[in-house]
Simulated scan of single mutants.
Amino acid sequence: MPAVRHRGERGSAVVDFVMALVVLLPLFIGLLQLALVLHVRNTLSSAAAEGARSAAVAGATPQDGVDEAREQIVGAVSPDYARAIRVEPVSIGGAAAYELTIDARVPTLGLGGIAIEFSVSGNAIREEAP
């Protein structure tokens, strides 16, 4: 026997679907945005640490660290995510070191022109030539 529906309930499934979608779609997009930002931040953090280590090797230059970080970024994510890469000499516990900093800009999903900006850095103590 077919299900009997009252005339007043016609189209209620569509309304229920839209009401659930209004809540669930922004939640899903927010989770995707969080995953993208965390992935990019972790990738850039790793590239900054590796670049600082490359710059700190005996006989290397700070530009070697920048090149290594840029190579890591291009290999893992888009080079557009790294706006600026810079290396600065610092002192860590009295030892000469390099700090490589990467400024990033991750665009938000679905919102043109708005972006999440952050910086990551990596440190490495410079090796002395023998």
Rank of each mutant, 00 (worst) to 15 (best):
H39Y: 13
V57S: 00
S119E: 14
V66Y: 04
A49K: 08
V90A: 04
V74P: 00
P79N: 12
D103Q: 12
M19H: 02
A56F: 06
F17K: 01
I125V: 15
L36S: 04
S54W: 01
D16N: 03
I29Q: 02
L36Q: 12
V23S: 04
G11D: 07
G65V: 15
P62W: 12
V87N: 00
V37Q: 07
L44Q: 04
E128F: 15
E9H: 13
R53M: 09
S45W: 04
T61R: 09
A97V: 07
E128I: 10
A115Y: 11
R5Y: 10
Q72P: 00
A58R: 12
I92T: 11
R5Q: 08
I85D: 02
R105L: 07
G110C: 10
G93I: 11
A56I: 10
V4S: 11
I85V: 15
Y98H: 09
P89Q: 09
R70V: 06
T101H: 02
L36Y: 05
R105P: 00
P62H: 04
A52T: 08
A115D: 06
M1F: 05
A96W: 09
E50C: 00
V18H: 01
L32G: 00
D103H: 08
A69I: 13
P107D: 03
S119D: 12
L34T: 11
R5K: 09
A84M: 10
A20Q: 08
L109I: 15
V23K: 03
I102P: 00
A55S: 10
D67Q: 12
E127K: 04
S121P: 02
Q72H: 11
L109W: 13
L109V: 15
V37A: 09
V22D: 03
H39Q: 12
D67K: 03
L27F: 08
G11M: 11
S91K: 08
S45F: 04
A82G: 07
A13S: 10
R7T: 03
R53A: 05
V18E: 04
R53G: 01
L32Q: 08
A48G: 07
G93P: 07
A47F: 07
L44H: 01
D64V: 14
S78K: 05
A3P: 03
A52R: 03
S119R: 12
V14D: 02
R105K: 11
G94A: 08
E99Q: 13
A35T: 13
L100G: 01
Q72V: 07
G8N: 13
A20V: 13
E68G: 00
R7A: 07
V106W: 08
V22L: 15
R105V: 08
P107K: 13
A95N: 13
P130Y: 10
R41T: 06
A48S: 13
I85E: 02
F118G: 00
E71G: 03
A56N: 03
T43Y: 06
I116K: 06
G75F: 10
Y81M: 09
V74A: 10
E9V: 06
L32E: 11
A35N: 08
G30M: 14
A129F: 15
L25W: 02
L24N: 05
G51L: 05
G112V: 13
I92V: 15
D103T: 11
E71W: 09
V15F: 14
S46R: 13
N42T: 11
R83N: 07
S119Q: 14
E68P: 00
